[in-house]
Design a protein around this nucleic acid. Structure first.
Lengths: 206, 206
DNA sequence: CTATAATGCGAGCATTCACTCGCTTTTCCT
DNA sequence: AGGAAAAGCGAGTGAATGCTCGCATTATAG
């Protein structure tokens, strides 16, 4: 196995100016990933688009992977923010309402930046792998917590299995809806898909 | 957008010897993809492992992408073979039986070569994109055909929506079961997963 | 056996790319 | 003001890689 390149910043941005530089670099990386694809994403190009020199880039990011990892982390954090707040909102709702809400949120989350999501999903470099796993684990445990406190509404079923299946299903439907079918889908179609997915999951749980 | 590299063979292998060369090259590509990852997969290395010179490689494959595409096609064909025969076997079975069989087959298919599947799923180059879409379309239409001829066992529901949701679900569960959790799962656990997934899908359809 | 086509070879070319280093400019602190 | 620390610069370096091309070897046909 190959040694993985470092991911931690070489130095922390302290002053205002340097924080802006770091931001510009991450933003540029995301934009190039979307607009030109992973292969075309070179450090020289990133620096160019960010309006920064390669030298400065390497002051804050020890490797190209570190930059991509930063993009992944930012994107994941954005999504996790939504998921976390939604799951607390939903905590007191009955299963039917809660699941419907989760399905909606899953699709919304995938719509934040579908192209970036696609590129990250397709081309996850080794660097981002850990982040994504942590992400999955957190979603899993949040959903499981909800199930635990709503056990009475549910039939007898292993909670881990239920969580695994439900999360996989909702994620897959959202992913495929937004990415595979793109704009082919009318709003009405999307609503039907959400209704039916909700129905399936709810029917499954009780 | 960048122009995509050609994928068609530069010339067809006619004689026995050259067919063996082509095979060795595809096989070597698959092995390197699995053992050393996409990044380490260079044409020079492929030729080396295949016991063939780079020059010969380029007699049959116009680009590196063409080689990867060939691997993808071979893998997809292997899976599609299983899916096709299973769906004809299943054509006369009632929904319950049929779905259970399909879930089993989905997992089996993912187990053919999990590592290769993972690499291909993660690192699909532009070249393989079309193949994968064709693959999805075929699965979709096969499943839809089954649903059509079993409409009486099902509640009223748009067949495309039903197909989309069912295929997404089964694929996602199989994928995550085999790849995310790897060997962490006991056989019993897998059986439970299959039972529950079947239950969910069947419950959804009627 | 000989001519022709098919197959195979691999050093090397051209290019790309991640990353370094010596230096300048800007900001902060007293 | 002035010195130190932080931030920024970008030409240049070395390594990797996709691919070509001229030639060598092997198979087929007449």
């Amino acid at each position: 196995m190959a040694r993985k390149p470092p991911t931690k910043p070489r130095k922390n941005a302290l002053q205002e100016r340097s924080r802006a530089t770091v931001d510009a670099l991450v933003e540029a990386t995301a934009r190039i990933l979307v607009r030109e694809g992973f292969e075309k994403t070179s450090t020289n190009r990133i620096a160019e688009i960010a309006g920064v020199s390669v030298g400065s880039l390497y002051q804050y990011f020890p490797s190209k992977e570190a930059l991509v990892a930063a993009v992944i982390e930012r994107h994941n954090e954005e999504i996790m923010g939504i998921v976390r707040t939604t799951l607390t909102e939903v905590m007191d709702m009955p299963i039917e309402k809660a699941v419907r809400r989760l399905v909606t949120v899953a699709i919304d989350a995938h719509r934040i930046n579908p192209e970036l999501h696609r590129v990250l999903a397709e081309q996850i470099p080794r660097a981002g792998k850990l982040d994504v796993e942590a992400f999955n684990r957190e979603v899993h445990s949040l959903v499981r917590a909800y199930f635990e406190s709503h056990r009475k509404e549910m039939r007898k079923i292993d909670l881990d299995v239920a969580t695994f299946i439900c999360v996989s299903t909702i994620e897959a439907v959202a992913h495929n809806t937004v990415l595979n079918q793109a704009e082919m889908l009318s709003d009405k179609m999307v609503r039907t898909l959400m209704d039916e997915t909700t129905r399936m999951v709810v029917g499954f749980l009780r």
